[in-house]
């Protein structure tokens, strides 16, 4: 008997991506550049986050034609984004055979309260998180992979750093808690109690946690790996830079050898200009994508 869509198969798929870089692409040509540079997967979308930010309005699932074009162009896995809570966008992507769905705050949420109940799908999901409460709620709903939310499309790493540190610090705190303290911690953080017990026992999340939201340079990618990320998502950082091929290759290398500073120095030479960045304090509350979901 063979079984599809089990936790092991869905979480295992993300395990295979570890130590790798997943790149946002908007067409077949970019997908090929990403694959050639050594990306472990691509995220097919209509516009990269910085363009979504610039365009404003409502951002939705990409036109299926784009997703299909990317799926036909590369042999590495293809991910695609569905709006938070948009059950139908997710089912469409699943029916197309997309390898992973990102239920993403980069798109305009379809549901301002509920996320998709993801354990009923055969396709695995990745979701964003800023802290352990958010991380465990998403796992509780069936997410098989996590990523920091960061602040997408800004080229500013500060939020991704803060979110990665927060999750790690909370796991450490949890591990030092007495038995009778965990329930109150669960209540205060809106975190499923049983999951907290499991994390406390194993000393880590039961799924991989990648860095995302603001990675613009090879050094940014290496920084996130040092802070404990299992891998890296690069959104606008590659194809909004001066030389996408070079940036893509260098970010892959810096992610593999995140503690080899001499090497990261070498590959950072003459890369050209990174994507333009945005300082957090200049963002108005309604343009902060990370606050669109809890």
């Amino acid at each position: 008997m063979s079984k599809v869509g089990t936790d092991r198969v869905k979480r295992g798929m993300a395990e295979m991506q570890k130590g790798g870089v997943i790149m946002d692409v908007v067409n077949a040509e970019q997908a090929k550049i990403a694959e050639e540079a050594g990306a472990v997967a691509v995220m097919a979308l209509e516009r990269v986050p910085s363009d979504i930010r610039a365009a404003g309005g409502v951002a939705r699932m990409a036109d299926p034609t784009i997703v299909e074009e990317v799926m036909n162009a590369v042999s590495i896995p293809v991910m695609a984004k569905a709006r938070i809570g948009h059950i139908v966008e997710a089912r469409i992507l699943e029916s197309m055979g997309v390898d992973y769905i990102d239920e993403s705050e980069v798109l305009t949420p379809a549901d301002d309260i509920y996320h998709i109940k993801k354990d009923g799908y055969t396709v695995p999901f990745v979701c964003g998180c800023r802290d352990l409460g958010e991380a465990t709620r998403r796992i509780g709903e069936g997410a098989s992979m996590l990523r920091t939310k960061g602040e997408p499309g800004t080229g500013n790493i500060v939020e991704a750093v803060s979110h990665m540190r927060q999750v790690q610090a909370q796991i450490r705190r949890l591990m030092n808690m007495a038995d009778d303290e965990v329930m109150v911690y669960a209540k205060e953080n809106g975190a499923p109690y049983e999951l907290l017990l499991q994390i406390r026992e194993e000393g880590r999340l039961p799924v991989v946690n990648f860095a995302a939201g603001g990675i613009a340079t090879p050094a940014d990618a290496a920084l996130m790996m040092q802070l404990g990320a299992d891998g890296v998502f690069v959104g606008s950082g590659v194809f909004k830079s001066d030389s996408p091929e070079k940036f893509a290759r260098s970010i892959v290398e810096a992610t593999t050898h995140y503690d080899d500073y001499q090497l990261i120095g070498e590959i950072s030479k003459g890369l050209g200009t990174a994507m333009p960045g945005i300082e957090m304090s200049t963002l108005t509350p309604e343009t902060r994508m990370q606050d669109r979901s809890q």
Partner: peptide, 15 residues
């Protein structure tokens, strides 16, 4: 043969 059993949704466990 690479990806011979299909894409991720066809991934499976078996004895």
């Amino acid at each position: 043969v690479r990806n011979a059993f299909g894409r991720q949704r066809e991934s499976f466990e078996a004895d």
